[in-house]
Design a protein around this nucleic acid. Structure first.
Lengths: 342, 342
DNA sequence: TCCCTGTGCTGACTCGTGTTAGCACCGCAA
DNA sequence: TTGCGGTGCTAACACGAGTCAGCACAGGGA
């Protein structure tokens, strides 16, 4: 019974193909890797291909990687995946780009623990990944662990002070300008209030506020007020309720992120003000809740999918220029911005 | 200059260690893999260990895997990661368990495309993963692709009709009972309303509602009403507003998930009803928004971290019993449930 | 002295693949 | 016949590890 078909339980190897096609393993290798410089007759090529297909041959990438030192594999290491709802998009984009370039991704997270991070880096390098993506969930400056130094590396959603490493970050400044431009276009100018702590030491805060102010200034106007509060819904709720007790309602509210916007919605609702009839609301992030609010929230999206995609693509194509690449943040217009009542 | 230190650009191999320790590569291998049955003197053992450490030797897992057919690597394949904010937790749990067992995870998603799914399965198998996790973002029945049949496989958040595969799912029925028990304990019994379509063909819907009804029945009471609507905030908002126009307010509301609860919050707020003073609200999922609401939402959590952790642990320990394992869903008590006003 | 047993280590093979150098054959010109 | 260039293929080595069978030596008893 034995000796002809593929042995169950063992995978078909190149040697099996060679034997069945009555050629040497070398020849099989040349044909199957598509090397044309080796003068294999068209006849033999067809024969080997047919046999390989009929036996269901698939190359063992571990073995190939051992020989070529190319594993067609990347490592994606992030500080915290869980706590951020954006993680999915980041991984989604990375995974898609990997698939498009015939790679697979190791994904792991360190939870910010330097020792765990070091272990994970080593685990990836021990498996001979072709390159590494080092990702953070909030855009920030990082110092890259020494382990990674010798390997192709792309920073995702983070950067180094010197700027001397390839990195992919969101264009928060452009997002700020876009926010201001959107409100100006809808007719708001004098009574626009910013809700949220500008937090100059936080990249997103600094750039968003900078962009907003720059664009308003260019249009000859400026923010009516900045109501400060941490970027949480509860603080935003309290701060806005307090503010509206002593001040007239603004025509438009720029919230520094969607959590702040959620707090604002709840505060406005509690005070009998409707969005966008009485107050327009514009926000940043495009988190999951944006489409869940009533009315749905107009917000400027963090481009996590595009960022992940780009980072892996850089690795795959090897186009590693040592500088940050800024990915545009698109406006998601959902109807929480309208013209001000005259 | 050459010949003593490690050559830059080339990794230290076992052969380098053997040479530097003046033993055969075989001996080095025995020492470094910790085989004690091979009678290596304590002297030599120490010497090899010291040399390996000082050279910074790390085994090449690709090469080892080739020889042993164990890559210390698992594949996690999911239908959709991006659209669900729970993906992070699932991957987080899986990744943690993998780290604890010295494994690394390939993560990829098919977006429900069968052809992509097949490609990804093959990509993982070509890299000789030791096992596979097949995950879905919503608990449901699946048919497992034939590709996976020959490999150790755990279903995560899904199951097969026959039940004949190892799988890890949330214990939604217990969650339903827990919900009812929580409200009963707070003093609600006659005027509890369920908000959301029971959707008997959806696992979560069927089990949650089943659990709720069973527990209420055991306590000698039952739901006052089931206000039906899809599991979206907008539908829930509309349905609840309509219901409250014609009916007295319930003392407690069970929402079939957090999106529904968000809609309910907005509707109650619009009608001047406060949570939990006028109406207690209890929900399922523990999505990101639960702690963002004012007041924070009491909800029964989908145990995605624990599920991911368990699935990978099953693979790592090899304890693959062909049946579903139900992971308990914990109550997150945040204050949206209080005693009814007398 | 010879054999035997145990101790401590090593040579040689293997996993599945890529790659270099070179062999055998054919046809043609000298 | 001999030489020679081209065509078509293959033997042999390498990648970095794990593993089996067996060699060399020491010590002890007959």
């Amino acid at each position: 019974m034995n000796g002809s078909g593929p042995v169950p339980g063992r995978r078909v190897t190149q040697a099996d193909v060679a034997k069945a096609a009555k050629v040497s393993r070398t020849t099989a290798s040349f044909v199957l890797t598509g090397r044309t410089d080796m003068r294999i007759s068209a006849d033999v090529q067809r024969r080997v291909q047919r046999v390989a297909a009929s036996l269901g041959y698939r190359p063992n990438l571990a073995a190939r990687g051992l020989r070529t030192s190319k594993t067609h594999t990347f490592g994606l290491l992030s500080d915290t995946i869980a706590t951020s709802p954006f993680a999915g998009e980041l991984i989604h984009g990375s995974s898609d780009a990997a698939l498009q370039h015939d790679r697979l991704l190791f994904v792991a997270e360190s939870e910010g623990d330097a020792e765990v991070e070091a272990r994970l880096f080593e685990a990836m390098i021990d498996r001979r990944v072709d390159g590494l993506v080092y990702a953070t969930m909030f855009t920030r400056e990082v110092t890259v662990p020494a382990h990674a130094a010798d390997h192709p590396l792309v920073l995702l959603n983070c950067f180094v002070r010197s700027g001397g490493l390839p990195s992919v970050i969101p264009d928060e400044r452009q997002a700020g300008r876009e926010a201001a431009r959107t409100l100006l276009a809808a007719g708001h100018s004098d009574r626009v209030v910013l809700l949220g702590e500008p937090a100059p030491r936080v990249f997103a805060g600094r750039e968003r506020v900078g962009g907003i102010k720059a664009e308003l200034k260019a249009a000859g106007t400026r923010l009516a007020e900045n109501v400060r509060c941490t970027w949480s819904s509860h603080d935003a709720y309290d701060a806005l309720v307090r503010f509206l007790r002593d001040n007239p309602a603004p025509t438009a509210l720029i919230c520094l992120n969607d959590r702040v916007a959620l707090g604002a919605y709840q505060a406005l609702s509690a005070l009998g003000l409707r969005v966008p009839d009485h107050v327009s609301v514009l926000s940043f992030d495009d988190s999951v809740i944006a489409p869940w609010l009533v009315p749905e929230l107009t917000t400027i999206a963090l481009p996590h999918y595009a960022m992940g995609h780009r980072a892996v693509e850089l690795l795959a194509t090897g186009a590693l220029e040592p500088r940050p690449i800024r990915i545009p943040m698109p406006l998601r217009d959902r109807g929480s911005v309208a013209a001000p009542r005259e």
